[in-house]
Simulated scan of single mutants.
Amino acid sequence: MDQKSVIRLSHCDKDIYCFFVPDQCPECGVSFSGKRLEEAPVSVPSPFSNGHKEPCAFLVTSTDVLRDFDGSSDLHTGISNTSGTVYSYTRSGVQRESQGWERCVCVPLVHTHMFSLRSQWDQYLEQFSSAHTWDPASHSFDEESHNCYSFSLMFINCVLATQSKPALSKDEFTRSFVLPRIKRASKYMMLCREISQNHFYIVDSTHRDSGQGPSEDDDSKNK
């Protein structure tokens, strides 16, 4: 699905999501000219990032653009270096890619003030990726136990060890850092699909924080 900017307007006690600002309210037909400040359109931030512009990050991308983060598409994970090259593990071994990760869910791993870690990041990542563990001739790819996710998380834990910090379990990392972002991406894609099909997505206004898109409890929709 092509990336479009989602806009939210508030009117008639409704939140109206669309790709363009209509001349009149699709709910009541009143013209939007001379609208009040609280009814002004706001942009809904996209949950996606260009992974090649996100240094030192854990990245998740969808392998199927037609089912982009819809809950049924296969996901692929990787780690970016300081220049935006993404390292990921596949059946062919570790891939180093400077393109193809332009639409990702991003989990930043290094704060900007962590100069020492950032200066060693590329060396850590290259050494880790060159280990026999990720050589297909030595260890076969396994969808359950030896895959792109285990590659990424094991690297993160190796870095944590150099910082004398405890390792993260798969469940802990997924629950705390990955799942909330995946859920937001999935909701955003649902929102885009609804707008593409029906021009608008309309829900009862609940005075949500701007930019978060529809909540899990939104169940009224205008088609």
Rank of each mutant, 00 (worst) to 15 (best):
F32E: 03
L66H: 15
C106L: 03
M114T: 03
Q123M: 12
S140L: 07
K14W: 02
A40I: 05
I7R: 14
C56D: 08
L75E: 03
S31K: 12
V86Q: 04
K35N: 01
S31Q: 10
S176I: 11
H132D: 14
P41M: 13
E143P: 06
A40R: 15
R8F: 06
S220L: 07
R193N: 05
E126D: 11
W134L: 06
F173Y: 15
Y124W: 14
N147K: 03
S33K: 09
C192R: 06
A57C: 13
S196M: 06
C56W: 09
V178W: 02
D122P: 04
S129R: 01
G93F: 10
C106W: 00
H11N: 07
Q123H: 11
A131T: 10
K14I: 00
F32D: 08
C56E: 13
D122G: 01
S186P: 00
G213E: 12
V203H: 10
G78D: 09
T61G: 11
D68H: 09
M189G: 00
D135E: 12
V21T: 14
H132K: 13
Y149K: 02
T133P: 02
Q99P: 00
D15P: 02
F115W: 05
S119F: 04
L168N: 07
E27L: 13
S129I: 00
A137G: 11
V94Q: 01
S119M: 08
S83R: 01
R67S: 15
T90E: 11
S152D: 08
I7S: 09
I195L: 09
G211A: 04
V110K: 10
L66R: 12
L66Q: 15
P55G: 10
H146C: 14
F155G: 02
G78N: 13
Q120L: 14
G71A: 00
I79G: 07
H199T: 14
Q99C: 13
P26E: 09
K165C: 11
Y89T: 04
S10G: 07
E144H: 15
R208H: 09
V42M: 10
D74P: 00
Q163E: 09
S88M: 04
V60C: 07
E39N: 10
Y188V: 02
L66N: 15
L117F: 12
T162H: 13
H207Q: 12
K183T: 10
Q120V: 05
E97M: 03
G34M: 01
G34T: 06
R8C: 15
Y87C: 00
E144V: 15
C192N: 04
A167P: 12
Y124F: 15
S72I: 00
S92K: 11
G29T: 08
S62Q: 08
Y89W: 01
V203N: 10
G213I: 05
F151V: 06
F200Q: 09
S215V: 08
M190W: 04
G51S: 13
I79M: 03
F20R: 09
I156P: 08
Y17M: 06
H132P: 14
W134G: 02
W101I: 00
K4N: 15
L160N: 12
L59M: 02
S49F: 11
Y124A: 05
R103F: 08
H139M: 07
F128D: 03
S130F: 04
C148A: 05
S215C: 13
S5H: 07
Y87P: 05
K183E: 14
